[in-house]
């Protein structure tokens, strides 16, 4: 399965990219995606799966899903 991962703000600067594709096995979760990328779970990070914000890092992800890893919003 492949998962598209998007990074924004300071996270994109830390990852040195705005998007990448990772490959994993069935049973992937947001936490496993973050572990593959070497990103530690933190309350300072916001997560969205297919544009829906998720607060549970054990939320399952599936083939073709889009996972966004985001710093706190700072618009306005």
């Amino acid at each position: 399965m492949s998962i598209q991962v998007l990074f924004f703000g300071v996270i994109a600067e830390q990852q040195k990219t705005k998007a990448l594709t990772i490959h994993g096995e069935d049973g992937m979760t947001v936490a496993k995606v973050m572990a593959k990328l070497g990103i530690s779970p933190s309350k300072a990070l916001l997560i969205a799966v297919n544009e829906q914000q998720q607060h549970d890092i054990e939320f399952p992800v599936h083939d073709g899903d889009e996972v966004a890893i985001m710093p706190p919003f700072s618009g306005g």
Partner: peptide, 21 residues
Amino acid sequence: PIWKKEVCSDIPKLCFDATPT
């Protein structure tokens, strides 16, 4: 999901504001 990054005149780099405004 909108983020801002300040462009600071007095230091030679961009200042990322990762905290809510």
